[in-house]
Nucleic acid binder design. Structure first.
Lengths: 125, 125
DNA sequence: CAGCATCCGCCACGATACTG
DNA sequence: CAGTATCGTGGCGGATGCTG
C-alpha cells in the first residue's frame, strides 16, 4: 500500500541489499575493475591490487564467480595457468560502478573538507 | 609510469577505496535512499529501514554526517525534534547509486540462477 | 523523542605455513 | 603457479538498559 514507506525490505530476496552485501566488501569492486582490461591470471591480479592477500583474493574471486560476475578458466599446463575474466554480467555491473568511481574521484576534496569541519565542530564540544 | 598497472592505490587518499568503505557497509545506502524524499526524523527513519537497530542508525548517521552526505538539525522543542536531510553532496551521490539500484533490481534473477548453477557444479565435485 | 553506554558473538580480514 | 589450511584479531553489528 501507499502508506508503507519502508524501503528495500529486509529479506534475502531484496536485490539491493544483496548487491550491496556482495560488492560492498573491501575487495570486490577492485577486482572487478582490475578485470576490465581483459582476463588476468591469479598472480597478475594479486600484484595489480595493492594490499590484497592471497586468501582474500581467492575467496573474493570465488564469491564473484558464484554470483556470476567472473569466469574462471583453468589451462592444464605445467605449471598450471588460471585466468579470470568478467562475464557479460560482470562487464555489465561495471558500468554503474564506474559512475561511482568517477564520482568518488571528483568529490574527494569535498569529503576531506567535510571531515575536517565535522571533527573541528565535535572537538569544540 | 605506464608499466604500473596497479589500480586504486592502497592509501588513505584513495577516493575509491574511501567511498566504498563508507557507503559499502550494511546501512549507509539504505539511509541515503530513505532521505531522498525529503528530511526525516530519527524514528521515522528507523521505521522506514527494516531491521536497523537504534545503535546502527545513530552510528551510521554520524558517519554520513561526518563525510558530508547528511545534515543534522536539532529543533529545541519539547520533546526534542531532530531532522536528517541530504546535503547537496548527499543528493549528488544518490544519482550514481541509483543506477546501481536499478541494475540490482533488473539482474536479480540472473544472479540467483548463477548461484544455483555454481552450487550444483561445486557439490558435484 | 532521540539518543548514549555497555556487553558480547561472530565473521571479515590478515599472517603464516604448507601443497598439487 | 595457484592455490588450501589454520590460527589470531579487530571491529561490525545486535541486544539490552538507561537518560536529558
Amino acid at each position: 500500500m501507499a502508506s508503507d514507506r519502508r524501503i528495500f525490505h529486509n529479506n534475502e530476496a531484496c536485490p539491493v541489499r544483496n548487491v550491496v552485501a556482495q560488492i560492498g566488501d573491501k575487495w570486490s569492486l577492485l577486482i572487478l575493475f582490475a578485470l576490465t582490461d581483459g582476463a588476468e591470471r591469479f598472480n597478475a591480479l594479486k600484484s595489480r591490487i595493492e594490499g590484497i592477500s592471497q586468501r582474500m583474493l581467492t575467496q573474493t574471486l570465488r564469491d564473484l564467480e558464484r554470483e556470476g560476475y567472473v569466469d574462471r578458466t583453468v589451462y592444464p599446463e605445467v605449471p598450471v595457468r588460471v585466468e579470470y575474466a568478467l562475464t557479460e554480467m560482470g562487464r555489465d555491473i561495471v558500468k554503474p560502478l564506474y559512475e561511482l568511481v568517477v564520482w568518488a574521484d571528483k568529490h574527494q576534496p569535498k569529503i576531506e573538507q567535510a571531515r575536517k569541519i565535522y571533527d573541528k565542530k565535535v572537538s569544540s564540544t
